[in-house]
Nucleic acid binder design. Structure first.
Length: 431
RNA sequence: GUGGAUGUAGCUCAAUGGUAGAGCACUGGACUGUGGCUCCAGUGGUUGCGGGUUCGAUCCCCGUCAUCCACCCCA
């Protein structure tokens, strides 16, 4: 074959796409319940937007961006995450700032140049929500509650919420130096990657999974012990709020996220069945980002969920093939093809006024197959009825496919249509 | 960027150093206007791609591309 989908991308086909549509509908429903409104931002942005927000030393910026130049030489990048674009949109569009607490969400593809594996793709989909304008712990709690609500709505209950605080501009630099000094002392016992991190991003060492690093990490000072009083109080208040909402969590002092803009609260939610990539999503507070972008002082918090991972964790059982048609019009003779097509068109009722419309999904063969084959096909399409043309002397023959019996003939098209509509079952949404 | 496994019909898989087979699917038929079961027949593959070894490779070697898994990191 000449062409194939680019590495790390994939097509979502009928049979699978129904699960996506279902997830999207459920998510929109939950977002609406919490009063969040959707923002659809561009899929590419100025490269600087990501470099300056996500951070120059992060892996995402250093080696995972899809960056290109347009015809005027501007450097653009396919978005690797959704928060920075949304903050940009927030600052660019005054209507988003009307409410002192803006509740926004997005849903769409993100792009990162990485080696694909289970639950990881170069184009992947995220659902994200952002709450801008509140520094209060209630905002943190609402975010995590909303995250859980989305998972709950699609049936994912068995999850672990990991919670940590990274401090703020007051206490983090000191902690960063403390940890650098500590690991410097034990540099000899660290793995090669961690030796590099010592220079680039010492906090990341805390997250290392190499067994030989474990003892050194275990002895490292904890972020939580070095929080300034304000950050410590905020963290305590967030924990109290979560408890108040009945949300269980685990404190994860070594949870460090891969984007530089986070301050104070960070969290991840993990689920089973995802292979090595067990996080269905994560997020955190970013109190400085809006200001860094030149906007007003606007504390904010957000999260993102990986849609592939979410679908993976709630089970890959393919949805039963949804019926594709209610009615199949069968041409008994090859010459009846056009008559079949015309009847199908009328039965669909698409020409009717919208308020009178109750369309039947109607298919008819265009491959010129035998009546026998058309019947087999009608079964496969899940049709409830087969209607035969040409019309007989006493009307249209109708067969109930499930019962396997022929119904009374319908003298005219109008009677045939109302007969079918009367017996039509409501279309069930794919699950 | 690193490591391991894999790559044969639409799908799931088999086979042998001598120019590939099954099941399912698909098409037609056995069924006197009409399906689901059963049966019969048929379509369909330059064995991922490119080189090399060999009289000859799908099976051996090298490269490459892709997929899967793991590392890194994250969704």
């Amino acid at each position: 074959m000449k062409f194939q989908a680019p590495k790390g991308t994939h097509d979502i086909l009928p049979g699978e796409v129904e699960r996506w549509q279902w997830l999207e509908e459920r998510t929109r429903g939950v977002m609406a319940l919490y009063g969040y409104r959707e923002v659809r931002s561009p899929i590419f942005e100025s490269t600087d937007l990501f470099v300056r927000s996500v951070g120059e030393s992060t892996d995402i910026v250093r080696k995972e961006l899809y960056t290109f130049q347009d015809r005027k030489g501007r450097s653009l990048t396919l978005r690797p995450e959704g928060t920075a674009p949304l903050v940009r949109a927030f600052l660019e569009n005054a209507p988003l700032r009307e409410d002192s607490q803006a509740r926004l969400y997005y849903m769409g593809p993100m792009f990162r140049y990485e080696r694909p594996q289970a639950g990881r793709y170069r184009q992947f989909w995220q659902i994200g929500a952002e709450l801008l304008g509140s520094a209060r712990p209630e905002a943190d709690a609402e975010m995590i509650d909303l995250f859980r609500a989305v998972l709950h709505d699609v049936g994912l209950e068995e999850v672990t919420v990991l919670l940590n605080s990274l401090g703020d501009a007051t206490c983090r630099p000191a902690y960063r130096e403390a940890i650098r000094a500590y690991f410097k002392q034990h540099e000899g016992k660290l793995c090669g990657d961690c030796k590099e991190r010592l220079a680039t991003n010492p906090l990341r060492i805390l997250d290392c999974k190499v067994p030989s690093c474990a003892p050194v990490i275990a002895g490292a000072p904890s972020v939580l012990d070095s929080l300034c009083p304000e950050c410590a109080e905020h963290f305590e208040a967030v924990k109290r709020a979560l408890t108040g909402l009945g949300i269980r969590y685990e404190i994860a002092p070594r949870l460090v996220r891969g984007l530089d803009y986070y301050t104070r609260t960070v969290f991840e939610i993990h689920a089973a069945g995802l292979g090595a990539q067990s996080a269905v999503g994560g997020g955190g507070r970013y109190d400085q980002l809006v200001k860094d972008f030149g906007g007003p002082d606007t504390p904010a918090i957000g999260f993102s969920i990986g849609m592939e991972r979410l679908l993976l964790s709630i089970g890959a059982d393919a949805a039963p093939a949804a019926p594709q048609a209610d009615v199949v019009v069968i041409a008994l003779k090859p010459e009846a093809g056009i008559e079949a097509q015309a009847l199908a068109r009328t039965l669909r009722g698409q020409q009717e006024a919208p308020e009178r419309r109750s369309p039947l999904r109607v298919l008819t063969d265009v491959a010129g197959r035998s009546a026998n084959s058309q019947m087999k096909w009608a079964s496969k399409m899940g049709a409830k009825w087969a209607v035969f043309v040409p019309k007989g002397e006493d009307g249209y023959a109708v067969r109930d496919m499930a019962a396997g019996k022929d119904e009374q003939r319908q003298p005219s098209i109008e009677e045939l249509r109302s007969w079918l509509l009367k017996r039509r079952e409501p279309v069930e949404s794919a699950r």
